[in-house]
Nucleic acid binder design. Structure first.
Lengths: 191, 191, 191, 191
DNA sequence: CATGAATGAGGGTTCATTCAT
DNA sequence: GATGAATGAACCCTCATTCAT
């Protein structure tokens, strides 16, 4: 029997192609051909290509955060977890040929994107912020008296460095931007 | 007679459309229609849509750096010039409806982009790095003895923050990421 | 409903137009317009114009050999069958306004033709050779002792006369070359 | 100074391209580019692409018959001159990658060709017939009494064999059809 | 003689989507 | 759930030709 349903095959194939080739450069025909399903089957499961795109964004979300979790599973120190998350990203970018951030790319391909798509992109960014904020909070800060750390600020800055470095790598197709991003993070955390 | 040449009209129109709608969502037909020229005229001046894209990238380069120059023309303090460049960017993003970075967007639309396109994107990033590095060098650092500033590192970090904040704004369609980016820059500079 | 499938309509129309106007002078637009189908329907059934051309060549093959069979159906004498096949060709050329040989024309229109197209052209020529060779073998030769007939040679020569006469007619738009070709055939057979 | 005029350059280039690639597959742009002249220059010397085609046909006429003359210059025996003319053609076809007969090809590319073009094609065929007829007349026939040779017939048959063999070679991209054509010619001459 | 710039019409091909079965 | 066939609109690009200079 076919272990994977038609729907899963479609999402899997579309995700691979959207990610590797870009959304607009991937046609429905290629998706169904490589997924091995009929065209009408795709439109049975998804109302439109855009709906398929939403499924794609959800799938990449799961893939990425599963990868990150795995990468950090044996690490407990919060500062190290943050640094390592940058390392994980760097490695991921190499493996995906410097394709950049899925969500930023979709935002770039669809300047007038739908609410559904915007929501998925924001969801991923918020999740990242949340992750960093949790780690930052866990850090035992050694601060002079009367000083406090705004963990929200710091988490936002880290996310910006994270996405900024990802973007630079996408342009240069090289990994060195992460060296600078990690240097910046270290400065901010060890202050 | 016609004051602006056909070529200029084409580049101007294409730039507007590529920037507002995206490269793939803008067809040659729309470009020539809104530019008021014949299709063959476009292909007389540009070998392909991709070549037109290169002209577009060059034009945006001129526009952005001219804007930045203008914004900073009366400012001399290097730290302030850096901060103000972030403000300039923020304002620019509002005016362009949070379209993001032209070069990152093109990289996102064309994962397998040509050398020509890549070159333009890298050119713009290097120019930014160069700008920030020059400013950083001009700062009169008050450092403890035996300490030096690696201006190259710092410039790279600032670029990353700059592009990271731009990317975040593109996702959220809001301006707040620049508050955090500027906070980060200030921390790094006032150290 | 529609008795003839869209595919058949396309092949039928394309064959008529390719044959009457030439391959390059017949646009896809004209084909679909006269066939009464949508452009995408054509490309659903045929990967490219060239593939449609292959279908055209196959169709002409069927048409011509069916015509020839019909023309010769009541004739048994092999020599007469050969002569009559030239008559059949002559009549065919008149009916098709001296359009010449489908396969030689395509070879002329596509100097760098694909393997698929070449194959169809060779197929038709070999079929002709085979037909003539079979007839030649059936002839009861009255030869001096120690002499034999090389049926392969003779069949090849007849094919050459056949195509040569067809070509001449295409140039002159007149039928007289067949008189000479038939004279030559008679000389060669009655030896 | 430029020894060859612009006009000559155009004809030379167009001839090469029309012959190698086909008339319809050769665009005006390629011609002027490879000829190194401006587009308007071409249209100064030739009213249209079709007029350029006429010049092309004339040029090929001269090239071919000059080649033939050269090939036969030391041969006097008329029978041998005829056979050698087939050899010359065979060699010519190899050198031109089995492109076939210029005039038949143009007739194939332009089913509804102009009078001017038709005229050039017929001119070449008649010249060939004339050449063969002259040679045939020079042969000292050893005939039984009461028998005569119709040199006109024979010349026509030879032309048909000549073009037929050329056509077959164009299809097969091989030289063997000339073996059969030459065999046929020998039979007809030595009778 | 020669040129660069401009053009309308059409080239072949692919798009995402729908429909009857 | 699934399918093959069909579609209108749009895709990027090239054609032979003309015109003002």
């Amino acid at each position: 029997m076919n272990r994977t349903s038609a729907r899963d095959q479609i999402v899997k194939t579309a995700s691979r192609l959207f990610f590797n080739q870009g959304y607009h450069l991937t046609g429905i025909n290629q998706v169904i051909k490589e997924a091995g399903v009929a065209k009408a089957s795709l439109y049975y499961h998804f109302r439109s290509k855009e709906d398929l795109c939403v499924a794609y964004l959800k799938k990449r979300y799961e893939i990425w955060f599963a990868l990150l979790d795995k990468y950090l599973e044996s690490i407990t120190d919060p500062s190290e977890r943050i640094i390592k998350s940058f390392e994980c990203r760097a490695q991921y970018l190499v493996n995906t040929h410097f394709g950049g951030c899925t969500y930023l790319r979709i935002a770039s391909e669809m300047p007038r994107r739908s609410k559904k798509i915007s929501r998925q992109a924001i969801l991923q960014k918020e999740k990242h912020h949340q992750f960093f904020q949790e780690e930052v909070r866990k850090i035992k800060w050694k601060l002079p008296e009367n000083e406090t750390i705004d963990t929200n600020d710091l988490a936002h800055i880290i996310v910006i460095l994270f996405d900024g470095a990802t973007a630079q790598c996408q342009i240069y197709r090289e990994l060195w931007p992460f060296e600078y991003a990690i240097k910046a993070v270290k400065k901010l955390l060890l202050k």
